[in-house]
C-alpha cells in the first residue's frame, strides 16, 4: 500500500466510509480485553472507557467493523495487514461441551457425528473460522463486556447415516486483539 492509499484508507475508516482494507482499532490506552487483572475496565490513566478498552487493538475488515463511538471518543481505526488469525479454542469446547452437553450432543448425532469424531470436528471448525474471518465472511453480533461477538457460517458434511447430507452451521466467536479470535459457541446447526 503506498502512502496516498494509506492516507485515503485512514480517512475513510474514521469517517465511517466502507473501505476494503484491514483496520486495527487504537485507543490511547495500553489495556485491551485480554488485560489483567480480571476485566477490561475504564483506564483512568488515559481516560479510556471500558468499551473502548474492550475493542482496543482488535482487527476487522474496513467494510465490516463495529461502529462503536461515543462523545469525545479518541479511538482511531488504522489501516493494517492481516494474513493469519490466531485461534483461542481449547479442545474441551468439543469434548466437554459440544459432544457432552445433552442438547448439543443430540444435535451432533443428528448430523451423524459421535465422540470419536472430536478431532475431526475440531479441525473443521478451526479451518472454517480462520478462512471465514480472513475472507471477510463474518457477521457482527452483540458487543458487551466480553467483547465484539461475530458469527461465521459454514457448511458441514454429514457423517455415517447422514453422509449424503449437508448442514448449514455457524460458530459464535469473540474478536480479541491483534488478530486473535476466541471461539465461544463452537457449532450450531442452523
Amino acid at each position: 500500500m503506498n502512502i496516498l492509499e494509506l492516507i485515503g484508507n485512514f480517512l475513510k475508516l474514521n469517517l465511517g466510509i466502507p473501505c476494503d482494507c484491514w483496520a486495527i482499532r487504537r485507543s490511547r490506552s495500553k489495556k485491551n480485553i485480554e488485560t489483567c487483572k480480571g476485566e477490561a475496565t475504564y483506564d483512568e490513566a488515559t481516560n479510556t472507557c471500558a468499551h473502548c478498552v474492550a475493542l482496543n487493538q482488535t482487527i476487522f475488515k474496513g467494510n465490516n467493523l463495529p461502529m462503536f463511538k461515543h462523545f469525545r471518543c479518541k479511538c482511531l481505526w488504522i489501516p493494517t495487514q492481516l494474513n493469519n488469525v490466531i485461534l483461542d479454542f481449547p479442545q474441551d469446547k468439543i469434548t466437554k461441551y459440544l459432544l457432552y452437553e445433552p442438547n448439543k450432543f443430540a444435535m451432533m448425532r443428528s448430523m451423524g457425528y459421535n465422540k470419536e469424531n472430536a478431532n475431526e470436528i475440531y479441525e473443521k471448525i478451526s479451518k472454517e473460522v480462520s478462512k471465514g474471518f480472513l475472507n471477510n465472511q463474518y457477521q457482527l453480533k452483540s458487543f458487551n463486556n466480553h467483547g465484539q461477538h461475530i458469527q461465521i457460517n459454514f457448511i458441514l458434511d454429514g457423517k455415517n447415516e447422514h453422509s449424503h447430507e449437508l448442514f448449514n452451521c455457524h460458530t459464535g466467536c469473540v474478536v480479541w486483539p491483534n488478530g486473535k479470535i476466541k471461539i465461544a459457541t463452537p457449532l450450531i446447526k442452523d
Binding site: G38, N103, A106, N145
Partner: peptide, 17 residues
C-alpha cells in the same frame, strides 16, 4: 472469565440451537 461479576452463558433448545 468472569467480567464485571458476570459469566457469559449460552442457552440452547432441545435441538441444540
Amino acid at each position: 472469565e468472569i467480567r464485571y461479576n458476570q459469566f457469559e452463558v449460552v442457552f440452547s433448545n432441545p435441538d441444540g440451537s
